[in-house]
Design a protein around this nucleic acid. Sequence first.
DNA 1: CTTGCCTCTGACGTTAGCGTCAGGTTTTAG
DNA 2: CTAAAACCTGACGCTAACGTCAGAGGCAAG
Lengths: 123, 123
Amino acid sequence: MRIGELATRTGVSVRALRYYEEQNLLASERSPSGQRQYPDSAVDRVRLIQQLYAAGLPSKSIAELLPCVVNGEATPELIDRLSAERDRIDSRIGDLVGARDRLGTVIAAATANWRTGEDCRRQ
Amino acid sequence: MRIGELATRTGVSVRALRYYEEQNLLASERSPSGQRQYPDSAVDRVRLIQQLYAAGLPSKSIAELLPCVVNGEATPELIDRLSAERDRIDSRIGDLVGARDRLGTVIAAATANWRTGEDCRRQ
DNA sequence: CTTGCCTCTGACGTTAGCGTCAGGTTTTAG
DNA sequence: CTAAAACCTGACGCTAACGTCAGAGGCAAG
């Protein structure tokens, strides 16, 4: 398929797909005229890239880890990198849970105050 | 205290603290000569700001929500905003958990292959 | 008084992940 | 065959949260 179809099928912009290629995250064949050609598997690949981006990994890390994630091509060093990233994600999750709980208690308190008609600034 | 002490006590750079003031996240008194003066409570305030930044909130949202979080100053609209942010954090957590689990399975598989001496690229 | 560290206000630099033209070719629909 | 739609390669723009000078004043110690 060509780049436009891949874009609509993944929900990612054409510009982003070209950017992924620039970052060596996504390869493409070229037609004789120079247009990019992707196999169907590219859809999953793009979704995986998106997932790793969503996890906060920068392009460079994704580029290093993708061969391992996709092909199972793993050296001990790569496994260490993967573990390190997973741990970072874990600690990020911890941060987020903390923030969420904080907001949660604030919301509960504010809602209670509001419902009982108390002065919102008292506390 | 002055800005340098606040910086060392919070682990945040002086530049960042001035930036927070610029974004209306952190107020300061001024000495006659123009130097910033902070109360002890500023330490907690800065930590709270950091926590919200860590949760992925941009300055503008933090500025809107801080009065509510700190003073309990809540209108129904603010409570809605808080809930919306909490929900966004929740969905971010979901993304992160998904990515972490994905890495987890990859790590497990790669480690197994590596221990059994299998060709890492076979799969 | 002066040395040295802290602080001040601009203001430009940086990084990432794209958005958005510009100007030109290619493919497709009628 | 032609016009519209899709694609190409640069290349500049943008936002956020600061980093990093530059140039100048402020403050405690000897």
